[in-house]
Design a protein around this nucleic acid. Structure first.
Lengths: 248, 248
DNA sequence: CGTTGCGTTGAATAAGGTCAAATAGAGTGG
DNA sequence: CCACTCTATTTGACCTTATTCAACGCAACG
């Protein structure tokens, strides 16, 4: 019922006024590194929000591409599905991160973006972003950095999938989440996984049983405490060592 | 001795005049889709070439980032090396493709780019590219497409590494190479691998012995003919079927 | 014509996957 | 609030795939 387009219009309009310049994520998101004046130019660009409920999709593979989305709240995953039904989670995404860049090249999205919990995104019409970028060179540069970092991130995942063993993948995964939670002001050592074991496995190229077994093993080794989706990291260095050295 | 900076200067100056507007790769490379007038604006931007000998690096991880590189001739690989010595090939690159976008985000390259055979790249100073992009909107858009396609390509590799079995990976690899050779006017079915079995394995997350065994198996099945680095694809559909259907 | 690097092949092994069963929670309706 | 259902998770036993280790062949090159 909240979803009805006319419902709570006054409220929505008020929300629309919450712009980049007053957004608490501006140090993480597209405005990163821009001056106050430049961020105000961004404000004219980001004028719509979209609420997504848990389980809903923000966009699907094949959808026409028109906008990027900056996550304001909530936790998202992106995945790719092959014709034969196999699918792979390509990323988990947190507030401040930009979704949708996969669609620019072909004018259609290449993956699906799902909300893992209720959330809200800022809609950034891409044609307008390019327009404003042509005037605000720091915005242009910042956007290029965001895309570049996405490429580097993907290379990191390739590394993980191509060279690491199951335990290393899990350790890297937990450390990466921890880091990103810290950057958002949350605890580095205690957090709630929004995704299932199956989704973690899909992302890491493992089966859900393997993920579960390794969580149990890490727990036995005193590295973490797991209770369902609640994770507490007890020995960060221990996890790091799993990554840094080969036993052989 | 050719490497001496002053050697053959007259020749190099002549080469510098070979610009995008007269480049045979303009349908594949950055100028793709631009008008003649727009390509001429690109000409002012791409004014240096660099020759790379087989085995040399174009850039290394950690090098300060300043330029992108458009491959004119030759075959390149990019790889990432972890502290513990493990490395992973993140891509093989052909004429018309753009290297170096990994460096934009941090002002330093994140991977190493090696020439697998003697080749030549066009040096695209990135600050100038951004400058010209602000004036030529189609160039700006084209560049965004190139970056986006790189992201989608990386997602494809993640898919390959995360969900495919060894045979499927090899089949996908061969079909991908074939496609890209066709786009460059070469035979789709007969080509020379510039990389070793080890490099293929590294890219596909497999050991070199596995790569070798599967090549032999494909040969026994009449899918391909292999002789060292020379490959002939005998049954493209057979390879495709390996990808499209799970036997289970 | 030996050296060297690359590729192929075989046998043994280990890592992770598959299948199956038991358990734990979350959410639902009575 | 409780029983019920459904889904997610854990764990065990067994199996498959790819790796590891090792030996050998081939081709290019000095």
């Amino acid at each position: 019922m909240d979803a009805h387009p006319a419902a709570g219009k006054a409220l929505n309009i008020h929300q629309l006024r919450t712009v980049c310049s007053s957004c608490s994520l501006r140090e993480l998101c597209l405005p990163m590194g821009l001056s106050r004046a430049e961020i105000e130019q961004l404000d004219q660009l980001v004028y719509t929000r979209r609420r997504i409920k848990r389980g809903e999709t923000l966009y699907r593979a094949g959808d026409a591409f028109g906008s990027l989305y900056a996550i304001r709240t909530g936790f998202f995953k992106t995945d790719v599905i092959l014709e034969d039904g196999r699918d792979q989670v390509t990323g988990f995404h947190m507030p401040g991160e930009i979704l949708g860049m996969d669609g620019i090249g072909t004018e259609a999205h290449a993956c699906n973006a799902h909300a893992l919990e209720d959330g809200e995104v800022c809609v950034i019409p891409f044609a307008r972003l390019e327009e404003v970028s042509r005037e605000v060179r720091n915005l242009q540069h910042q956007f290029h950095k965001v895309m570049s970092r996405e490429i580097v991130r993907d290379q990191g995942v390739m590394m993980l999938l191509g060279t690491m063993r199951a335990e290393e993948r899990l350790a890297a995964f937990l450390l990466n989440l921890s880091q990103r939670f810290v950057a958002r002001g949350y605890s580095p050592s205690e957090f709630h996984l929004r995704m299932t074991r199956e989704e973690i496995g899909s992302y890491l190229g493992l089966k859900l049983e393997t993920v579960s077994r390794i969580f149990s093993k890490f727990q036995d080794q005193g590295l973490i405490a797991v209770q369902q989706k609640h994770i507490r990291i007890l020995d960060t260095d221990g996890l790091r060592q799993l990554l840094a050295y080969r036993e052989v």
